[in-house]
Design a protein around this nucleic acid. Sequence first.
DNA 1: TAGTGGTCTAGACCACGTT
DNA 2: ACGTGGTCTAGACCACTAG
Lengths: 266, 266
Amino acid sequence: MQPYPGLMLMSDTPSSARASEPRRTATGAAYSPLYQQIKALLLQSLDQGEWKPGEAIPSEVDLAARFQVSQGTVRKAIDELAAENLLLRRQGKGTFVATHHEAKVRFRFLRLAPDNPEAPVTSGSRILDCRRVRSPADIAALLQLRTGDIVVNLRRVLSFENVPTILDDIWLPGTVFKGLSASTLARNKGPLYAFFESEYGVSMVRAEEKIKAVSATSEQAGLLQVDVNAPLLQVERVSFTYGDRPMEVRRGLYVTDRFHYKNSLN
Amino acid sequence: MQPYPGLMLMSDTPSSARASEPRRTATGAAYSPLYQQIKALLLQSLDQGEWKPGEAIPSEVDLAARFQVSQGTVRKAIDELAAENLLLRRQGKGTFVATHHEAKVRFRFLRLAPDNPEAPVTSGSRILDCRRVRSPADIAALLQLRTGDIVVNLRRVLSFENVPTILDDIWLPGTVFKGLSASTLARNKGPLYAFFESEYGVSMVRAEEKIKAVSATSEQAGLLQVDVNAPLLQVERVSFTYGDRPMEVRRGLYVTDRFHYKNSLN
DNA sequence: TAGTGGTCTAGACCACGTT
DNA sequence: ACGTGGTCTAGACCACTAG
């Protein structure tokens, strides 16, 4: 059996190689360890939808055979992807593509937690509007689009225990989220990211947030049922799919009266 | 050479073992994989100060010989400690105990970043007061002390570019931080956690934060030079040393006018 | 040149889940 | 009984750092 095309080992240094022309790996990157090359190939398969969220990927021995490397090398590649929460290992069952369709993963990206954790939290979403508009400059920059490109702007209020708590202003690239409208959203029950996964094949994999304290404007105060100038947590999030491609900008205003934003440092 | 006392392998199941009496490992925990047992032993050595912050720990082969396991098993234990930022690997040099004495680690626990990152940030600390007092109930609970136990209460203002930006209210267990006073603190230049490391042998290893938006009281407004009722980010942090022992409670109020709290989700 | 961590392999066996 | 991921070992070799 011939080796997997493009893979190369550190020790594979053909005598014809010149230092001025660094070798390239299967995915076009400059040299990296074999397990990193395997990781990049797995990432590519995930991005291309070869294995869909919730599905199992091939077993380690199968992948080792496919890439013509040892099981330990595949294992190390999968280990890293599992550490980044792109894959989920389950002993005895297999390795699965991470998905937002799971109660336990519901709060993977929502870091707001009740101050008194014993209360069972019921939640609801109310769509304020959903329009296709030309992108303002700041949003375009964050989504790596051009100013004026079509984006979907979605606004909603999330309530916990029937108390309005989060006011979201969401921006999505219009070319990716084609049919998205208030009516399609109305049919959705679960988390928005799960909806994006099944309806548009977009998997949110990582996000970065910038947090400030602000005062509620009168419009915001009305929607969140708080006093004008009440302190609110402003959370600006950029979410990324595979390959660090930005796919969502979200500006959230959180009422932190009975909730707090939870974070771990290490 | 005899095996390291207390270590046991999954396969070491003496025929006399009864299911009702689970075996114990070297550190007293119930059964766990060998590399986890090694990790616990390394943690114990770190906690006891066998290797101090900034120092190198023994090489992998030395540790493998010491514990009578393969290098790969030691490696996996060290890998986890490095992933948790307790150890730092440097190829060709060795593995080092993490320390807060380093410019690059200065912002490991401070997640406040300037909105315009190009500006070089100068910082300064002003101690408001440092007193030994009896612990209020909430602080005692977080520090796992009894209400009324002696704690050190330290208040300070941090400025960036000479603009007051953070008002900190810090609580420390009095039995650990014995000589701490405003005068000893005055001699300290660098980060507080580096000071705690060298002066009291306390290494902060992990922290949890709860964040809310609040309105400035008149006292807070005066100290931070903002308007009364200005929105502030309230950050309540509990920091832990080795073994998840809480060693500090810190209530910070951040002015997020030109700064933001930065976070990554994955 | 010697010592350190980093990569890669091959094989044995264990724990878990399903059939 | 079988297939999955998880642990553990032993050995070879590479890359980096230092004397």
